[in-house]
Design a protein around this nucleic acid. Structure first.
Lengths: 252, 252
DNA sequence: TTGCATGATTGACTTATGTTAAGTGCATGG
DNA sequence: CCATGCACTTAACATAAGTCAATCATGCAA
């Protein structure tokens, strides 16, 4: 494992406060691996043998039932995922696949469980991480149950804008079919919802989103911290990655 | 606080393994209170000052947005709720109201946080509890995103039957409007969905549910552990309470 | 370059679910 | 006892979202 990666991992809220000794032994037990795009890393139902940490690339967390599939999150560097399954020593509830060439650190969950037994600071960090993840999924459930498709999309656009420091324009960080699946709708519905956003203050052109009337969009989406975040520290959060702000789009 | 209650609480997975001393000091800081039906215990957005433990009665956890409301869980004795908000010292994401006359133990979240810093066993139990809660909400999200209303209802019926030791008949443990809200639909839709279940092996008559053709119902609902549980230890799980099995209904 | 695969869009249509508005039945309290 | 309220049901209708199919755009490979 490279030093720069180690430093990045060490800096995650989950690992930041543990003793150096425990961090070293935990990461020594770990190994890293690089995967091509579209490789299934985890099959839901399998036993949770490893905590995963994305250090390069991106990973989709999804779940299936019968012939249906839904995206639950897209994870970007540097973040951990499927912590809860590792802790409970239980089957994964989600599958994971790489979206691009991706580098993953794998920490055996047995070492993980051993470590927070002996390192109180790590235990505290784990508690904090899990509480955050929990709240994140609760927000997702509220979003799904309280808003319709267009409202969810509008709120998503405002969230992305927020994360891009309030930028008026940004580029969608993921494919639209993934966004649709995350929002719980079909790509066709997303397409239509995007067009209809023009009536309430946002325009989508290809990958580019531009907020044409923030007041109107906010009046429509009624964003609230109790559904839309803010999301906290960079890990297993139940959300999609930040949009990169579009320099050109600012000031439109 | 009564001794029998203390014993019940002590027996919860969350408190079972901590030292007696810490348990005593934690519960000494706590107090209990009895509320009439339909009292709002928690307002979402408020700061999480207390961990709540239901020892008698029942509590609905719900959330609102604009003029809409949705039920996220119904909690029955003896269980804790809103642990995550207490840990993060953050605003509640859900509101809570009593459904009937209800007795609640309130543990100041500041004492809670102090305690798992000094009691590793309690920290471990908290980790386990949070991981379980997290998985529970993930299941709920999967249920919502992967199944339609009728499938969710069918799966719910099978889950309840399972919890009633595979009973063929049981009584709905909550009002239908609550069940509808939990399933993410209107009461009218639930009514129709219930009638239409007859075609796939279940009949609803008032509060009574009878599985007329389990094979058919299972073929339709396709229950899976990765969505439908089993739910684990009796706490903050994201589900509705067990149905009581109906003795008379068995064998129909 | 051409050809192909994949994602995105669009339109016509179907279906699921919500809405509105009566009703029914049951429980509760005067 | 009746009257009121509330949960639940039912029906007619409206709307949101899914489905299917065709088309377009884009990027990549031959």
């Amino acid at each position: 494992m490279r030093d720069s990666e180690l430093a990045d991992i060490r800096n995650l809220p989950l690992f930041r406060s543990m003793t150096e000794q425990n961090f070293v032994s935990l990461t020594r037990a770990a190994y890293d691996q690089t995967f091509p795009p579209q490789v299934k890393l985890i099959e839901e139902g399998a036993m949770a043998d490893f905590l995963h940490i994305v250090v390069e690339g991106s990973v989709e967390l999804f779940a299936g039932w019968r012939d249906r599939e839904t995206t639950l999150a897209v994870v970007r560097p540097v973040s951990t995922f499927i912590l809860a399954a590792c802790i409970k020593d239980a089957p994964y509830l989600m599958s994971a696949r790489t979206l691009e060439k991706t580098r993953i650190i794998l920490v055996p969950s047995v070492d993980l469980r051993a470590t927070f037994r002996i390192d109180p600071e790590f235990a505290m960090a784990t508690i904090s991480e899990l509480a955050m993840s929990y709240r994140s999924v609760v927000r997702h459930a509220k979003d799904l149950k309280l808003r319709n498709a267009r409202e969810r999309l509008a709120a998503y656009v405002l969230r992305q804008s927020q994360m891009a420091n309030g930028a008026v324009g940004f580029v969608l960080p993921i494919e639209k079919r993934l966004l649709a699946s995350f929002l719980g709708i079909t790509p066709e519905s997303l397409s239509r919802a995007m067009k209809s956003l023009q009536e309430v203050g946002a325009k989508v052109d290809g990958q580019r989103v531009i907020i044409t009337d923030r007041k109107a969009l906010e009046a429509y989406a009624q964003p609230t911290a109790l559904i839309d975040g803010p999301e906290y520290e960079g890990s297993a959060g139940f959300d999609l990655p930040d949009a990169r702000a579009e320099a050109e789009a600012i000031g439109l």
